[in-house]
Amino acid sequence: MAKLQGRIVVDTEKCKGCGVCIPACPFDVIALADNVNSKGFHYAYMKNPEACTGCVNCALVCPDAVIQVYRKKATA
């Protein structure tokens, strides 16, 4: 069985920590970091990367277009 696995890369310096991507994720992958970027925003990060399927929902709703999505098929 092939399963899609994904990863997101957040441009942490441009992320404003609005958190709109968090409810958009169907697998509860994203959370806001405890750390802040140079502007003082708690940027988004993958708290649960194994669950990501690369569905791009987070990137679609991201108002600052800071999320890159990668997806690869894993063969069992």
């Binding site: 990863r7 690369g54 999505v69 997806r71 894993a74 069992a76």
Partner: peptide, 23 residues
């Protein structure tokens, strides 16, 4: 009970796997 292959971030974050990027 086949073990699902778990890819690492290095495997997935490659140029050819990019599906969404800032225009």
């Amino acid at each position: 009970a086949e073990q699902q292959q778990q890819l690492t971030s290095e495997d997935i974050i490659q140029e050819e796997n990019l599906v969404f990027d800032r225009t």
